[in-house]
């Protein structure tokens, strides 16, 4: 449920380094389950640069509108254009077809990110 090749934030975003200095960013499976049906995803422009923790967009579900924060510093090189017509991809598979941004990493990965085991423990602690 929490792929080992991703790193996670306590706010339930993931970053998946692709090995070429870029990474995919999105929200976790736990986040999409908690939100319910995702009906709209607002994403930044290609070229926008963010520091770790900056708000990069919003996810609107039937329940609420939530901000998304970039897990690690980077510049947006691509956005998932499919989400405009198919926001439900975030529900169907948050890590693959539900990815939101591809970023060019700025510097090292944010050292505060959690690995899959630590994130799973964080989710378990939030559920109680």
């Amino acid at each position: 449920m929490y792929p080992a090749d991703c790193k996670y934030t306590k706010n339930h975003e993931f970053v998946k380094p692709l090995g070429d200095g870029t990474a995919l960013v999105g929200i976790t499976n736990y986040a999409q389950e908690a939100l319910g049906d995702v009906v709209f995803v607002q994403l930044p422009e290609v070229g926008a640069a963010f520091a770790a923790g900056d708000e990069f967009g919003t996810v609107e579900s039937v329940k609420t509108v939530s901000e998304c924060y970039l897990p690690t510093a980077g510049e947006v090189v691509e956005i998932n254009g499919d989400l405009e017509a198919h926001p439900e991809f975030v529900n169907e598979d948050a890590y693959t077809k539900g990815w939101m941004l591809k970023i060019k990493l700025t510097g090292d990965l944010n050292p505060e990110l959690l690995d899959a085991a630590a994130y799973e423990a964080h989710v378990a602690s939030e559920a109680h």
């Binding site: 049906d37 039937v62 329940k63």
Partner: peptide, 9 residues
Amino acid sequence: PVWYASARN
């Protein structure tokens, strides 16, 4: 229950 699989559906 607030929803099951999908409030939209």
